[in-house]
Deep mutational scan, measured.
Amino acid sequence: MSIQHFRVALIPFFAAFCLPVFAHPETLVKVKDAEDQLGARVGYIELDLNSGKILESFRPEERFPMMSTFKVLLCGAVLSRVDAGQEQLGRRIHYSQNDLVEYSPVTEKHLTDGMTVRELCSAAITMSDNTAANLLLTTIGGPKELTAFLHNMGDHVTRLDRWEPELNEAIPNDERDTTMPAAMATTLRKLLTGELLTLASRQQLIDWMEADKVAGPLLRSALPAGWFIADKSGAGERGSRGIIAALGPDGKPSRIVVIYTTGSQATMDERNRQIAEIGASLIKHW
């Protein structure tokens, strides 16, 4: 067993022997301040990774656009098919120029040779490549099948209805392509620590998230040296922004954090800054 596999296998073990965790309302004060600064709703939840206990939450059962955070769930569904012998990570998928959609920095470079399922998941999570996500959605049967996968996990809230990039439209009061912070946090925890996926697939999923290259201005910008984070960000229309993450000190994750916002007129930089400040408060009061 590799060191990384050992780390993920012992996530519940280490967490069980940690000192009790206590909620700190100071972080919620910052979440509410972010709402004021952005002029928009902000949803927040913080779960203990081992027990699933909610440590703090704000608007945990209000719907927010998922945006690209759905790509972690998508690759979880792909990995479940791999575990069941219905898919192979090494299978190569070929596609054409007509398949390319807006923001496809990886797939646009491989029109000639195609990409493997493993490479597509890596591109979808680490670079948020939209064509990679659409190609992977095709392998599982489309958005409705991802929703069905989530329902089978016990998540009857999260739903995907459309493809990239239309799913980022974020129309107010439109339930399409949305989740709730509580539902997303619980589902992410199941994917990373539950028995739904094999140990190898859980490790692969967290490795992809740990290698995320496009979430630097968010929670990662607030992390002290030595902290662990595996995350996936999302951005959408109407001032929408979000991030889902597993993080913790001492090089291992111990909490799940989900943050979503929508309806702001603020710039992307300002949305990023507010999420980073929430992260800084979380870490300060850990």
Rank of each mutant, 00 (worst) to 15 (best):
E277D: 12
P25T: 11
S80A: 11
E56W: 05
I278K: 00
D177A: 02
A170L: 08
M127C: 09
Q97E: 15
G141M: 06
K30N: 07
N168G: 11
F13Q: 05
D83Y: 02
L28S: 08
R241V: 04
N130I: 01
S2K: 11
M184K: 01
L19Y: 15
M115W: 02
G236D: 04
L219H: 03
S281I: 14
L73F: 08
E210M: 10
K190R: 14
R59Y: 04
A246V: 13
L197W: 03
T179G: 01
I243V: 11
A185S: 08
P60K: 14
T158I: 02
I11D: 02
G194L: 09
I229R: 01
F14K: 02
T116K: 06
L49A: 09
V257T: 06
S254P: 07
T147L: 07
G194Y: 08
T147S: 11
G39A: 14
E61F: 10
A9T: 15
C18R: 01
I229D: 01
A170E: 06
A230E: 01
R91A: 07
W208A: 03
Q4C: 11
R238A: 09
L247Q: 02
Q97Y: 15
S122H: 12
L188Q: 03
L47M: 12
K190A: 13
P181C: 08
G279S: 10
L79M: 11
D207H: 09
K284L: 13
L10A: 13
R189A: 13
L79A: 04
L191Y: 07
Q265Y: 12
A225D: 14
L74T: 06
V31Q: 01
E210Y: 10
G154D: 08
L120S: 03
T138K: 15
I206F: 13
A276L: 08
S201D: 02
R189W: 13
S281N: 12
K144Y: 13
S68Q: 00
M180R: 12
L188M: 12
T138L: 10
E277P: 02
W163D: 08
V117Q: 03
S264Y: 04
G234N: 01
D129Q: 00
G85K: 10
M115N: 03
V106Q: 10
L100H: 04
A222N: 14
Y260C: 04
A34S: 13
L74N: 02
L111R: 08
A185G: 14
R81E: 07
D99S: 10
A124E: 01
K232L: 00
Q86Y: 13
P20F: 03
N134E: 02
S68Y: 00
P165I: 08
L188D: 00
G194R: 09
L160F: 10
F58K: 07
A15W: 15
D33E: 12
S122I: 13
D113C: 09
P249S: 08
M209G: 03
D250V: 10
R91E: 06
I171R: 14
D161P: 01
L28N: 07
R59G: 04
E237C: 12
I171Y: 14
F14I: 13
L111K: 08
D250E: 14
P65D: 01
E175H: 14
T138F: 10
E61G: 15
Q274S: 10
C121E: 01
E270I: 12
G39Q: 11
T261I: 12
E195K: 11
G43M: 00
E87V: 09
G263I: 04
M66E: 02
I243D: 02
T112S: 14
K232M: 00
H110G: 08
Q274H: 12
R81G: 06
D177M: 01
Y44I: 08
M184S: 03
R81K: 14
D83L: 02
R162N: 11
L79Y: 02
S68C: 01
Y103P: 07
T178Y: 02
T186A: 14
L146F: 11
M209L: 08
K232N: 01
A9H: 12
L188A: 07
D231Y: 04
P25F: 08
L10E: 04
M1G: 00
N50T: 14
H151K: 15
L199Q: 14
Q274P: 05
T261H: 06
I125C: 09
Q86V: 14
V257S: 03
R118G: 15
F6E: 06
I45D: 02
Y44R: 00
P249R: 09
F64G: 00
A84V: 13
Q97K: 14
L38C: 07
G142H: 04
D129F: 00
A123T: 05
L73W: 03
S2Q: 13
Q274Y: 12
R241L: 03
M268V: 09
N50V: 11
E119C: 04
L223Q: 05
A34Q: 09
A170W: 11
T179D: 00
V21P: 05
D99R: 08
L188R: 00
G43Y: 00
R7H: 13
G236Y: 01
F13G: 07
D250M: 12
I256H: 00
R41G: 05
G263Q: 07
A183N: 09
K109Y: 15
G154R: 07
K109M: 15
I283L: 10
L55R: 09
D212F: 02
V101N: 07
A183S: 11
D83I: 03
V106Y: 08
E166N: 13
A276S: 14
E270F: 12
D174Q: 06
N168W: 03
M268T: 08
F22P: 05
K213G: 08
R159D: 06
T126K: 07
G85L: 08
L135F: 06
A276F: 12
F58V: 08
A133I: 00
A185P: 00
V29G: 15
A235S: 08
K190E: 15
T69E: 02
L49C: 08
P181M: 02
R81I: 06
D212K: 04
S221Y: 10
S68A: 00
S201G: 10
I3K: 14
L223N: 03
D231E: 04
M66I: 11
M153E: 08
K109A: 14
L146D: 00
R255L: 05
K252R: 13
P253R: 09
R59F: 03
R118H: 15
T198E: 11
T116G: 04
H94T: 14
E166C: 11
P25E: 12
H110Y: 11
D99Q: 13
T261V: 13
M268L: 12
F6H: 08
Y95Q: 02
K32L: 11
E26R: 07
L38A: 07
Y260H: 01
E46I: 07
P172Q: 12
N98Y: 14
M127L: 11
G142L: 01
E277T: 13
E145F: 10
A84C: 11
S122K: 13
E175Q: 14
R7C: 06
A235K: 02
L197E: 04
Y260N: 01
R241A: 04
Q204D: 08
G226R: 10
E61L: 12
W163M: 13
P181D: 00
T131P: 03
V31G: 02
E87L: 11
R81A: 10
P217I: 06
I278T: 03
D33Q: 15
W163F: 15
E35M: 04
G194F: 09
M127E: 13
Q203Y: 09
L146H: 02
H24W: 09
L89N: 05
T27W: 02
L192M: 15
Q204R: 10
T198Q: 11
A23K: 05
F14M: 11
S104Q: 02
S233T: 14
V31T: 06
S240I: 01
K30C: 15
N168D: 07
E166L: 14
G236Q: 02
A182F: 15
P224E: 06
L49P: 05
N173P: 07
M115K: 03
A182D: 10
T179Q: 00
L19N: 15
M67I: 07
F17C: 09
V31N: 02
D33P: 01
W286T: 01
N272P: 01
M127Y: 11
M184R: 00
L167N: 07
A266I: 06
G90Y: 12
E195W: 06
F70K: 02
T179C: 05
V257Q: 01
N130C: 05
T262H: 14
F22L: 13
D129I: 00
G216I: 06
V78W: 03
L218E: 02
Y260T: 04
L247F: 05
A215E: 04
R238Y: 13
L282A: 09
G234Q: 01
L191K: 01
D33C: 15
S51K: 09
W208V: 02
